[in-house]
């Protein structure tokens, strides 16, 4: 193979990868549109929505608590010495709070929920597909994408911001315990949060959480609906749901951070 052929095949491989990525992304967008636009036109179950709220929200509390508390503490461990050395100990609380509310809380909560709930949604819907339960819904004259997808997407979009606020509070608590135990006065910690954290930071973090909630449920449901036959197909759909969910959360986090907080904002 000549040098130019190798270059061409490399470029075409990249092109194929980009097309495949856009194809998958397109599937997710179409699925989310169909599921959400059908909310007002088609029947869905309020009971299912409440169940999903419980699964996504209450079911994730322990994992979010542990992840957030230790992340807050680790951030305090990593920053406290440096800040004290440069005489900036008064700002430690605000810096930890800013990092948490803008980045760590929405992203970590998103990743935790994508791993726990996204996998479970994809497996459940995949199993419904291979056991003809989705066909049964259609046979009853229901729109299966709305009936199954909408409560999951809506519940994720509601619970992710709630969990993010919870993660922020727990993370701050973790950082606070470490910092106060190492000699910083509690009122200094609190005051620096008041000075550095703006309501806009909180809104930005919550907007990110809302988008991540949409991503997690859309990817999980869409993969469940596309699951191949048998246990293997369901397993593969579950893996794809977690992998794509995580990748899209991290990718969108960059763009949202740039949009919301970039340019010195």
């Amino acid at each position: 193979m000549s040098n130019s052929d190798e270059k061409l095949s490399f470029i075409s491989a990249i092109g194929r990868g980009i097309i495949a990525f856009l194809e998958v992304l397109g599937c997710y967008v179409v699925f989310a549109y169909r599921a959400l636009s059908g909310l007002w036109r088609h029947t869905w179950s309020l009971r299912d929505l409440v169940e999903q709220l419980e699964k996504v929200g209450v079911g994730s509390v322990i994992m979010v608590s542990i992840t957030s508390a230790f992340t807050g503490m680790v951030m305090a461990v990593q920053t406290l010495d440096q800040f004290l050395r440069f005489g900036a100990g008064d700002y430690i609380g605000g810096v930890i709070a800013l990092s948490l509310i803008r980045e760590m809380s929405p992203v970590l909560t998103g990743l935790v929920v994508a791993g726990r709930v996204g996998a479970s949604m994809a497996a459940e819907i995949g199993t419904m597909r291979v056991t003809e339960q989705l066909d049964a819904l259609k046979a009853f004259g229901l729109n299966d994408e709305v009936f199954v997808g909408a409560p999951r997407i809506v519940s994720s979009m509601i619970m992710l911001p709630v969990l993010t606020i919870y993660s922020f509070v727990v993370g701050i608590g973790g950082g606070y315990l470490y910092v106060v135990a190492h000699g910083v006065h509690q009122s200094t910690f609190r005051r620096s949060i008041e000075v550095l954290v703006d309501p806009y930071d909180v809104y930005g973090g919550l907007l990110k959480a809302l988008v991540f909630g949409l991503i997690i449920a859309t990817v999980a449901c869409s993969e469940g609906f596309r699951a191949g036959n048998g246990a293997k197909g369901v397993g593969e759909a579950t893996t794809r749901a977690v992998v794509w969910g995580d990748m899209l959360i991290l990718t969108f986090n960059y763009f949202l951070s740039t949009f919301l907080f970039g340019g010195g904002g």
């Binding site: 056991t131 003809e132 339960q133 004259g141």
Partner: peptide
């Protein structure tokens, strides 16, 4: 169309091979 299809399907009862009961 979608509405007609829903109406038609609701006049039919279906028993799938594995039952397709909601687990």
């Amino acid at each position: 169309d979608e509405e007609e299809l829903i109406e038609l399907r609701r006049r039919i009862g279906v028993v799938f091979q594995g039952g397709a009961l909601f687990d």
